[in-house]
Design a protein around this nucleic acid. Structure first.
Lengths: 76, 76
DNA sequence: CGTGTAAGGAATTCTGACACG
DNA sequence: CGTGTAAGGAATTCTGACACG
């Protein structure tokens, strides 16, 4: 489930998020897709779950920097 | 594992096969990827295993029509 | 802050065909 | 038969920016 094999389009379908949101969460260092030679992002099923949780927390009022893993104990 | 989420490029990487081989196996009705709106093939991890086995059998001397599942026992 | 969009480019995938045999 | 390749087109994804607030 940790195989980074899905392109962003499929992830949008599985999460209901837009490409913009998914790329932004990466910019904020909340998810870490791998890149193909061509530069395309590849995600795992675990990433999909993580993305759904991130968006859920944001809708609950959290901020991206509060969701960064490895940080201090926040909204877990 | 049956989620059809991988594009052919990733499948090539996971199986070691070429796009040509993968598309040919579909043409011979050995694997059944789903299609995105744009027409791109999407495969599952199960498909990846199946593809590796197909290629293995072919290298053992079998022919594509002999690898079709639900083959002759069906009797049309 | 988190997300939408238009813009142009680059990488990916598609189909049908010719080739070898 | 099973697979390679060149060809042109269509769909996908990328980045950086402007916008709202």
């Amino acid at each position: 489930m940790q195989d980074k094999v899905m392109s962003i389009g499929i992830v949008c379908g599985l999460t209901g998020l837009t490409e913009r949101q998914i790329r932004y969460y990466e910019e904020r260092e909340l998810v870490f897709p791998v890149r193909t030679k061509g530069g395309a992002r590849k995600y795992s099923f675990d990433d999909v779950e993580r993305l759904k949780e991130i968006n859920s927390k944001l809708r609950d009022g959290f901020h991206t920097f509060e969701l960064r893993k490895g940080g201090r104990a926040c909204g877990e």
